[in-house]
Simulated assay, not measured.
Amino acid sequence: MPAATPASVPDTLQQRLLACTGCHGNEGRAASDGFYPRIAGKPVAYLYNQLLNFREGRRHFQLMSYMLDYQSDDYLREMAQYFSSQHPPYAAPQKFDVSKATLEQGESLVKSGDPAHKIPACSACHGEALAGVNPAIPGLLGLPRDYIIAQLGSWKSGARRAAAPDCMAQIAEHLSEQQVGAIAAWIGSQVADSRARPADHVAKPMPARCGSMPSADVAH
């Protein structure tokens, strides 16, 4: 019998990005393991910056670096644009045991910060609804607790870096382990509104200058 003709695979961006959705979930909605983040609907410049950071070694995850090492800037922009335009429903928050006091502390830090220890509110930069701000500040909605803990820990240790001035590294330096856990627990326990979209601008001057938003107004 003649050999079967191999199935034809369409050369489309969606087909090529199956390499991403294998970990980040269909349409980039996030996996269920609590580690891989949602990338769907994030501001396009944020996604592009993170792809660059992995390619250039400012962020470290072997699989990401391996896939991105030889990709062009234009292709990274195309990838970022695709996932930024996706808006699938958010998954339900993961179940975990945490005290009421921890959740209250986390909510206070997210909404009001801790000025005495030079910790601004998360909402001061990431938006009142925590849905992010265009063009380059990510939303925090739907991020798993374990992922948030891992990223804040990476900033504290210097394993994760961003364009200077690296405002998140500066903020993370002032966070205690307890505060990191509280912030992650509160954000990770919230039910995300699938209608939420990144804001078009920061509502108030940002509390610190940030390399990812070089033109943003900064409070003095």
Rank of each mutant, 00 (worst) to 15 (best):
M1E: 09
A3E: 15
A3C: 11
A3K: 12
A3S: 14
T5F: 09
T5I: 11
T5Q: 12
S8E: 15
V9W: 04
V9M: 13
L18P: 00
L18W: 05
N26F: 08
A30Q: 03
A31C: 01
G34S: 10
I39E: 05
G41C: 03
L47K: 01
L47T: 06
Y48G: 04
N49L: 14
F54H: 05
E56Q: 11
E56I: 01
H60S: 10
S65E: 13
S65L: 00
Y66W: 07
L68H: 04
Y70V: 10
Y70E: 12
D73N: 15
D73H: 09
D74E: 14
Y75S: 06
Q81D: 11
Q86D: 03
H87I: 04
P89G: 03
P89W: 08
A92W: 05
P93W: 09
P93C: 09
Q94T: 03
Q94L: 09
K95S: 15
D97Y: 02
V98H: 13
V98L: 13
S99G: 15
K100P: 00
T102M: 11
Q105L: 15
Q105N: 06
Q105G: 04
G106I: 08
S108E: 08
L109Y: 02
V110N: 02
V110C: 07
S112W: 04
G113S: 02
P115V: 10
A116F: 08
H117S: 09
H117E: 12
I119D: 03
I119V: 14
C122T: 02
S123L: 03
S123E: 07
A124L: 04
H126K: 04
L130M: 15
L130E: 09
L130V: 09
G132D: 12
A136V: 05
I137H: 00
L140V: 05
G142W: 03
L143T: 08
L143S: 12
Y147I: 03
I149V: 15
A150E: 06
Q151R: 10
L152Q: 06
L152V: 12
G153F: 10
K156I: 05
G158I: 12
R161V: 10
A162E: 15
A163V: 10
A164V: 06
P165F: 02
P165T: 04
C167I: 06
M168P: 00
I171R: 00
H174N: 14
H174E: 08
S176L: 04
Q178K: 13
V180A: 10
I183L: 11
A184P: 04
W186S: 01
G188T: 04
G188D: 02
S189I: 11
Q190L: 15
D200W: 04
K204T: 14
K204W: 09
P205T: 07
M206T: 05
M206C: 06
P207D: 06
A208Y: 04
R209A: 12
G211S: 02
G211M: 00
M213R: 07
S215N: 05
A216N: 01
D217Q: 06
